[in-house]
């Protein structure tokens, strides 16, 4: 099969698999729900039926969160790697996860919050503040926009700073440590529709902005000067790109905790099918990200008897070996 044929097939196939996984996620879990009941729960809801309540209150919101969250992380990863021209760039490098973590920890420590729902706002605020700081220090105010290397270094530095502060709080407050050690695993369990709705506006801005950024980024592959010669406003493109990544990741980390690997791994898995085209890479990464997160969420229900394994853990267990195989099969990657 030719490369073109492969790349045109891979998107619909990926989408189909993702949808199938999403439907299976509605069906199976600690409590299996029969197919007709799924249909009824959606279209002929009976508030007295336990299956219907489980599906509407728990499963549906959880699957939605996994789909959107995974898609957001995959897309953000593709943008980050394309923009920084660094295959190691992970959205977490913008300090979003670190910022969210410190937000969570401080809100537990000072405000005594412990319910997952109460952690969304502080996580989002922390992520936002961190992202703005990274942007300013990364040179976003400059004529040519944020310099990718400097941005990544600034992100790494600030992440470490936030991580240190987080640990400082954790070592002073047992309560914070107790909540945080579960939050940090990352997963979609117990997310309610209200929570999804709370962050939906952020996604609603983030996704269109990200796809716009993917289109705009294409000329930048050739280097800043070549792009400028083509009439591209490089600083604006970079700013849009970073803004989109921050919105997508900030929303996801506040919803589901820090989920590693999706942003790093997914673009590498997609690239053999899409080639260098950034819009295609972005679209492919969105679909595969959603697919991976949904699969991890589903698989986590069966791995251990009587206990769910968090999606973040499952993704790490798949991601590590997948990356090993990927790297070993490939020629030397240029850095």
């Amino acid at each position: 099969m030719t490369g073109a044929a492969r790349s045109s097939l891979v998107l619909p196939v990926g989408l189909a698999i993702t949808m199938l996984l999403a439907i299976l996620s509605l069906r199976f879990g600690l409590r299996d729900i029969a197919w007709p009941e799924i249909w009824n729960a959606l279209f002929a809801f009976d508030p007295m039926n336990a299956d219907h309540i489980t599906l509407r209150e728990l499963r549906l919101s959880r699957v939605t969160a996994a789909l959107i969250g995974g898609a957001a992380l995959g897309l953000a990863g593709a943008l980050m790697q394309a923009m920084t021209r660094n295959p190691l760039a992970d959205p977490g490098l913008l300090g979003v996860n670190g910022g969210a973590a410190i937000g969570v920890v401080i809100s537990i420590w000072i405000l005594g919050a412990s319910a997952q729902a109460a952690l969304i706002a502080p996580a989002l605020i922390g992520a936002g503040i961190a992202a703005v700081l990274v942007l300013v220090l990364g040179g976003a105010a400059h004529r040519s926009g944020p310099d990718p290397t400097r941005l990544v270094l600034a992100g790494a530095a600030l992440s470490a700073l936030f991580l240190a502060l987080t640990w400082a709080v954790l070592l002073m407050s047992r309560e914070a440590l107790d909540v945080f050690r579960f939050w940090v695993l990352g997963g979609f369990t117990g997310i309610s529709m209200t929570q999804v709705m709370a962050v939906l506006p952020v996604y609603a801005v983030g996704f269109p902005l990200a796809f716009l950024a993917a289109r705009l980024l294409s000329p930048l592959i050739l280097g800043d000067d070549a792009a400028r010669a083509l009439g591209v406003r490089v600083w604006l493109v970079r700013l849009i790109c970073v803004g989109a990544v921050v919105l997508l990741c900030g929303a996801t980390v506040s919803l589901a905790g820090p989920i590693a690997f999706v942003g790093l791994l997914v673009p590498h898995l997609v690239r053999p099918f899409t080639g260098v085209s950034i819009p295609k890479l972005a679209l492919g990464s969105t679909i595969l990200g959603a697919c991976l997160a949904t699969f991890a969420d589903l698989a986590g229900r069966f791995l251990l008897p009587g206990r769910e394994v968090e999606a973040g853990v499952v993704i790490a267990m798949i991601g590590g070996p997948a990356l090993v195989i990927l790297v070993r099969r490939r020629q030397e990657v240029p850095l």
């Binding site: 295959p87 190691l88 047992r174 440590l177 107790d178 050690r181 579960f182 940090v184 695993l185 590693a260 690997f261 790093l264 791994l265 590498h268 973040g312 853990v313 790490a316 267990m317 991601g319 590590g320 070996p321 990356l323 090993v324 790297v327 070993r328 490939r330 030397e332 990657v333 240029p334 850095l335």
Partner: peptide, 28 residues
Amino acid sequence: PGQLVLMGIGISLTVSVINDLLMTRFDV
């Protein structure tokens, strides 16, 4: 070098998630 870095990041991430998971197995 390129392979080493990618491999290292991947395996480190997995291992650190194992650490996080182990942390939830203790009393506080």
